[in-house]
Design a protein around this nucleic acid. Sequence first.
DNA 1: AATGAATGAGCCTTCATTCAT
DNA 2: TATGAATGAAGGCTCATTCAT
Lengths: 183, 183, 183, 183
Amino acid sequence: MRADAARNRARVLEVAYETFAADGLSVPIDEIARRAGVGAGTIYRHFPTKDALFQAVIAERIRGVVDEGRALLAEADPADALFMFLRSMVLQWGAADRGLVDALAGSGIDVNTVVPEAEDEYLAVLGDLLAAGQKAGTVRRDVTVSDVKALLVGCQAMQAYNDDVAERVTSVVFDGLRAKGRR
Amino acid sequence: MRADAARNRARVLEVAYETFAADGLSVPIDEIARRAGVGAGTIYRHFPTKDALFQAVIAERIRGVVDEGRALLAEADPADALFMFLRSMVLQWGAADRGLVDALAGSGIDVNTVVPEAEDEYLAVLGDLLAAGQKAGTVRRDVTVSDVKALLVGCQAMQAYNDDVAERVTSVVFDGLRAKGRR
Amino acid sequence: MRADAARNRARVLEVAYETFAADGLSVPIDEIARRAGVGAGTIYRHFPTKDALFQAVIAERIRGVVDEGRALLAEADPADALFMFLRSMVLQWGAADRGLVDALAGSGIDVNTVVPEAEDEYLAVLGDLLAAGQKAGTVRRDVTVSDVKALLVGCQAMQAYNDDVAERVTSVVFDGLRAKGRR
Amino acid sequence: MRADAARNRARVLEVAYETFAADGLSVPIDEIARRAGVGAGTIYRHFPTKDALFQAVIAERIRGVVDEGRALLAEADPADALFMFLRSMVLQWGAADRGLVDALAGSGIDVNTVVPEAEDEYLAVLGDLLAAGQKAGTVRRDVTVSDVKALLVGCQAMQAYNDDVAERVTSVVFDGLRAKGRR
DNA sequence: AATGAATGAGCCTTCATTCAT
DNA sequence: TATGAATGAAGGCTCATTCAT
C-alpha cells in the first residue's frame, strides 16, 4: 500500500472512531469523509461498506484494550490486576466509548462475530487476569471468564447510564466479586 | 374516544412494542402498520411522530414495572422485596425488553425526559423498596436510589449481553449489594 | 334540505372563504372543518371535492360583486359609476380577497369556466357601467368590456403587490382610461 | 466545480424553469428530475430544498431582465426607453413566465426577500429608466419607482389574464403614465 | 345527517453506494 | 488513487377522500 493510502486509511479510522463515538452509528459517511478531509470514495476504497468501517473501528479499540490488559498482567500486583483492569475499562474506556457501546447495542452487531480473533485475545487476557486474582485469593473462585466479561459489560452500562454514581456502583460490584472475608 | 379508535390505538401500541423490541428503532412505520393491520395514517393519527410512538411504548412499559414494584412492596417480605424486584426486572423484563433498552441507548433518547412522571413514580417505588431493605438490615446502607437504578441498568445489560450467565452474575452483584455479614 | 344542514353549509362556505383568503388553497380540509366546528365528512356531504368547495366560495364572492355593481348602476352618477366600481373592486375587494385571487392564479383554475353564469352576470354589469360612462363622455370609447375587466385584474394585482402605492397607481390607470380632455 | 456538475446544474435550472412555468410550483421534484434526465438526488445536491430550487429559478430570471434593462438604457432613446422596457416585460417576459408569477403569488414567497440583491439591481435599472423618461419629458413626474414597479406587475397580470387584450390595455396604462399633453 | 377515524397514494428528503472525471 | 457527483431506493409524514359508527 502506498504511503499516502496508508495515511488516509489511518486518518479515516481515527475520525470514524471519534465520530461514531460522539454521534452514533447514524452519522452519514459523507460527514466522516468531510471531517477526515477526504472524498467519500476514498473511504469506500479502504472499507467496502459502512458496516465494515464500523467493525474496523471496534477491532482497533479492542486491540488497545488487550494491550492494556497484557501490560497489567506483566507489571501489576496479581492480587489487584483484575480490579485495576476492570476499573480502567469502566471509568476510562467506558466513558470515552459510550457512543460505540450504544451503537453496538442498537445495531444488532455482535462483537464476537465481528472480530473473532480480537475477541479471542481479549478473553485470553481477561482469563489470565482472573486466574491471577483467584490464585492470589482476592477473587471469588466460582466465577468464570464469561461471568467477568458480563460483569464488565454491566459496569460499563452503569457508567454510561449515570456517570456520577459510576465510582460507587462499580465498588459494589467489585465487592461482590471479591473473595469472601476479603471485603 | 370512539371504541374502534381506542382498539386501534391499543393494537398499534402493542404491535409497536413487539416490533421495536424485536427489530429495533429503525423498523419503518409502514411495517408496524402492516403488522397491526392498519394504514400508516392511522398510526399518525394516534401518535404524531414515530418518536412519539416510541415514547408511548416506553411509558407504557414503565407503568407496568411500577405496578409490579408496588405489588412487591405490599405483599413481599421487606428483607427480600428489593432483591426480588431486581431479579424480576433483570430476568423477566430485561429479557423481554432488550430491544427497547438497546434502542433507547442507541438513539440519544433519555427516559427521564421522555416520560418524566413515569420515571418519577419508578424512582419512588425503587426508593421505597430500598428503604425497606435497609430497614430490614439486608441491604447496604451506603447506597442510594440512583445507585440501585444504575445497578439495575447494569444487570440488565449483563443479562442482555449473555443470557447464560445472567443468573450467576446477578448473584454477584446482589452479594455486593447485601449488608456486610449477611452474605 | 333540513334547516341544520343549510346552516352547516353556509357556515362551511363562510369559514372556507376566510380560510382560503387568509392561508391559500393549500390549507387542509380538516383545518376548515375544525374552524367551522364540523366534521370533515360534513364538508364532503355538501361539496363533493375540495375543488368544488373552492369554486363555491368564488361563485359566492362574485355574486356579491355583481350586486354592488347593480347598486351603483341604479344610484350613482353614470359619469362616475364605473370608476367608483373599479375603485371599490380594487381597494376593498382586492384587499380582502387577495388570498383568493392568488389561489386562483396559482391553481390553474379559470373563473370563467368555474362559474360561467356568475361570470356572465358580472360581465353584464361591467358592460352596463362602461356603456354608461362612455355615454356620459367620461370614459374612452375605444375600450371594451374585456379591456376593462383586464384593467381591473391588473389593478387588483397592483394593489396586492404593494398596498402602499395602490391608490396612486390606480389613479394612473384611471387617467389612462378617461376620455381625452377630461383628465 | 466540475464540468459535468456545472452542466447538470444548468440543465436542472433550465428544466425547472420550464416546468414550474408550465405546471406551477406543485410539480414534484421527481418529475423535474425525470425531465432533466437526472436522479432526484442530483437536484438536491445542487439545491438543498425544493424551495431553494424555485428561488434560484426566480433569481436567474430577474438577472435576465436586469440585463435587458441595462441594454435599453445604453442604446435606446431615453424618451421611449421606459415604455419599451415595460412593453417588453409585459408582452414577452410576462407571457413566458406566467406560471412563475402565479406560483410566486400563490405561495406566499416574496421576491424581495428571495433574491434581495437581484431585486435591488432590478429596481436600480427601473429607476434609471424612469428618471431618463422624466428628464426627457415623456413620463409623469409624480410617479415613483415603486409606482412603476406596481404598474408593471399589474400589466403582467392583465397580460396573463387575457392575452388578446394585452396590447390595448397596456396602451391604456401607458397613456396614464405619459406626461400630460403628450398623449 | 353528522362525525371523525381510517385509508393509502404521493411527496420531500436522506444517504449508502457506484462511477465518471 | 482520489475525488465528489450521481444514483435511486427507502422512509417519514400529509392530506384528500371514504366509510364505519
